[in-house]
Every structure is written in C-alpha cells, then in structure tokens.
Simulated scan of single mutants.
Amino acid sequence: MPESPSPSSTAAALDQVGPRLRRVREQRGLTLTEVARLTGISKSTLSRLENGQRRPSLELLLPLAQTYRVPLDDLVGAPEIGDPRIRLKPRRVNGRTVLPLTRPGGIQAWKIVIPTSQSEPNPRTHDGFEWLYVLSGQMRLVMGDQDLVLGVGEAAEFDTRVPHWFGSTGEGPAEVLSIFGRPGERAPTHAPHSAPQPAH
C-alpha cells in the first residue's frame, strides 16, 4: 500500500500553490480584478491565495482551474505516488452515461452526460449530501418545491434527504460533475456564484 504523504510534505505542497497560481495568472495576461470577475472570487481572497496567506481549497481551486483552462493537478502540484489514474469505464445508468472519477469509498465523483429526452422529473430521496456543477448545456434541478435551471459554471449543493431530481431542460443534453458524500462527508462548496434561475 502506498505511504500517505507526511504532514510536512503536504504543507510544503500547499505552500507552492500560491506562487503557482500567480505564475499561471500572469502567463494568461490576467489581472486579479479580471480573475475576480471571471470566477466570482473576491480580489482580496485571490491576493491572499497567491501570497500564501490563505489555504487553497477545492471550492476556490475549481473555478480557477476552469478560468485558467488547466487541470486541477497543475495548480496543486500533486505528487506522483504510484499510479494515480482512475480507469474511466463509462456505463449507462437509467439512460445516462456515467463516468466514475474516483475510486470506491469515501466521497464519490462522477461526470454525468444527460440526454435531451430526460426532462421529466422523478424526485427521490436518500441519505447523503450532493454537489452538482454544470460543465456544458443547461441542467434542470427540482428540489422540494423549487424548480431551477443551472447554466454552465453554476453549482448547487443540497441534502439528498430532500426530494430531488436533476436532468435536461428538454432543449439539449447536459454534462454535469456530481460529487456525493455520505452523511458527515459534506464537500466544501461555498464559492460565490450566480444564483440559478427558476425554470419556466
């Protein structure tokens, strides 16, 4: 079994994230003000990240990786311990194409491709907590009494004990990143983003 990174090596890796963020931003020719506008992260938070005064988190690094168009690992500088690759084996689940992005156990992540035809809500409940991020197209989210539409770059998080369903708006397919955790494994997802718009 591969050894877990020591606390000192983890701290050293995190210390390198700030300089790496600044270098990538400057290579893209972007100012902090422009990045703040593109990501919804405040300029002061971005500055503290680059100066090492704030610890990087998934909720901050995801929108930055998307804005800079680089893999998340390029920002984190993840060490190569064994073979970190996940063997993507797409499978069909209830008419959707699902690609697992994590190994079994703990918090789970999937990329889900939802066909246009899946636009009829069928809410359900189960234990856990889910985070959704729209990669392409538009996604309809029905949760309790709410009926929402999320566009590219928008995210939602919710307790899955609330009746919920997500699918296509009926106007085209959608690609969604889904992160699911069992009770007590809630993913941190409080990065600012524009509010989803009610479905019509």
Rank of each mutant, 00 (worst) to 15 (best):
L38Y: 05
A109Y: 09
A156Q: 11
R124H: 15
Q16H: 12
T116W: 00
A195G: 10
S136T: 12
Q27W: 05
T67I: 01
R69L: 10
R55C: 06
T31L: 01
T39N: 01
G184A: 04
E26K: 15
R54W: 00
P183T: 09
W110E: 15
L32P: 06
D127M: 07
P84V: 01
P196E: 01
L46H: 00
H164Y: 11
Q146P: 06
M143P: 12
R182E: 13
P56L: 09
E50P: 08
V35H: 01
R91P: 01
P2G: 03
F166V: 02
T67Q: 10
T10K: 14
I114D: 08
T160E: 04
Q27R: 15
F129Y: 15
I179N: 05
S178G: 10
P121Q: 02
I114S: 11
V176T: 07
L135D: 10
K111V: 13
Q197V: 15
G18Q: 06
L101D: 09
R103P: 12
Q66W: 05
A195D: 13
S117I: 11
M1D: 13
E157M: 07
V152N: 04
V70E: 04
P71Q: 03
E59H: 07
Q53S: 15
H200P: 14
G151F: 01
G172I: 02
S9N: 07
D73F: 11
V162I: 13
S42I: 01
T31H: 00
V98D: 11
S6M: 06
R20F: 01
E175R: 10
L60Q: 00
P71H: 01
E157L: 05
G95E: 04
E80I: 11
R186N: 12
V149S: 07
P188L: 06
A36G: 04
H126P: 04
P163T: 00
Y133W: 12
L75K: 00
R54G: 02
R87Y: 10
L88R: 14
T97H: 02
Q146L: 11
N122Y: 13
S117C: 10
R186E: 15
P100L: 06
P63C: 03
P19V: 00
V142K: 13
E154Y: 07
E171F: 13
A12Y: 10
E157D: 11
A36I: 00
R124F: 15
Y133I: 07
P104L: 08
R85Q: 14
G151C: 05
